[in-house]
C-alpha cells in the first residue's frame, strides 16, 4: 500500500453495499417478526442510499445525488414510519409463520442467486458500466423479495416484500443505466407512497371484513 487511491476503494465499496443489500434480503426472508422486518427494510433503504451516493461519486452523475436523497427520504424515513404506525394501529407486531420452513426458503434463495447471476452474466458482458457486478445482485434481490411475498401468509409482510422488491429494482437501475431520469424516479417515489396509503386503507378494510389479516381469507373471494 504505497499510496491511497480512492477509486478502486469506491468500487469495492459498491460491491460491498450490493452484497449487504442481498444479505438483508436474505435476512428478511428468514425473519418472522414484522417489526424486525420493518427495521430491516429501513436498513436496506439506507444501504441503497449509500450505494447510490457511491455510484454518483464514482460516475460523476450529479442527478444520482438527488435520487439518493429521495431514497433516503422515502425508503428510510417515511415508509418505515408509516409501516410502523400501521402495524401499531393494526396491532400485528408478533411473529408470523411462513408457508414454507425457513431453511428450505433459503435453499431456494441460493438457487435464485445462482440463477440470476447466470442470467446477468451475458448482460454484464455487454454493459460497459463499471457497476456491472451489481446487476446480478440486484436481480437476485428482486427475486428474493418476490419469494418473500410468496411465502408469507399475512398481508403486511407481503407489502414489505413488495417495497423491498422496489429497492432491488432501483439498484438494478443505478447499476445498469446510471439511474433513471429524474422524472421517472420522482414518479416512482410518489407511486410507492400513494400505494402505501392505499395498502394501509385496504388493510383496515380487510380486517373489518374478515377480522384478520390472513390472506387465506381472500381465497374465499373467488367465484364458486
Amino acid at each position: 500500500m504505497s499510496h491511497w487511491n480512492p477509486a478502486p476503494f469506491a468500487q469495492q465499496l459498491l460491491d460491498l453495499f450490493a452484497s449487504l443489500l442481498l444479505l438483508i434480503a436474505f435476512a428478511m426472508l428468514s425473519q418472522r417478526r414484522i417489526l424486525t422486518l420493518i427495521h430491516l427494510f429501513a436498513w436496506q433503504g439506507l444501504i441503497l442510499t449509500l450505494s447510490i451516493v457511491d455510484s454518483a461519486w464514482l460516475t460523476h452523475q450529479p442527478h444520482l445525488y438527488y435520487s439518493a436523497g429521495l431514497t433516503l427520504l422515502t425508503k428510510v424515513l417515511i415508509l418505515p414510519l408509516l409501516l410502523h404506525r400501521l402495524i401499531r394501529r393494526l396491532d400485528v407486531v408478533w411473529d408470523v409463520e411462513t408457508l414454507i420452513n425457513i431453511p428450505t426458503t433459503m435453499l431456494v434463495g441460493i438457487g435464485l442467486v445462482i440463477f440470476s447471476f447466470n442470467l446477468a452474466l451475458p448482460i454484464s458482458h455487454f454493459s460497459s458500466t463499471i457497476l456491472r457486478n451489481t446487476l446480478g445482485i440486484a436481480l437476485a434481490s428482486v427475486l428474493l423479495s418476490f419469494m418473500m411475498m410468496i411465502t408469507r401468509r399475512k398481508a403486511v409482510p407481503q407489502v414489505i416484500g413488495f417495497l423491498a422488491l422496489e429497492n432491488g429494482l432501483f439498484l438494478a437501475a443505478t447499476s445498469a443505466t446510471y439511474g433513471m431520469p429524474m422524472v421517472v424516479e420522482l414518479g416512482v417515489a410518489l407511486d410507492v407512497l400513494v400505494g402505501m396509503f392505499i395498502f394501509g386503507i385496504f388493510f383496515f378494510q380487510i380486517r373489518e371484513t374478515f377480522d384478520s389479516l390472513d390472506i387465506r381469507h381472500m381465497e374465499k373471494l373467488k367465484e364458486e
Partner: peptide, 13 residues
C-alpha cells in the same frame, strides 16, 4: 436447527 441452517446457508452464500 433453523438458526444454524441459516448460518450454514449464509456461509454457502
Amino acid at each position: 436447527p433453523e438458526y444454524l441452517g441459516t448460518a450454514f446457508l449464509l456461509a454457502v452464500l
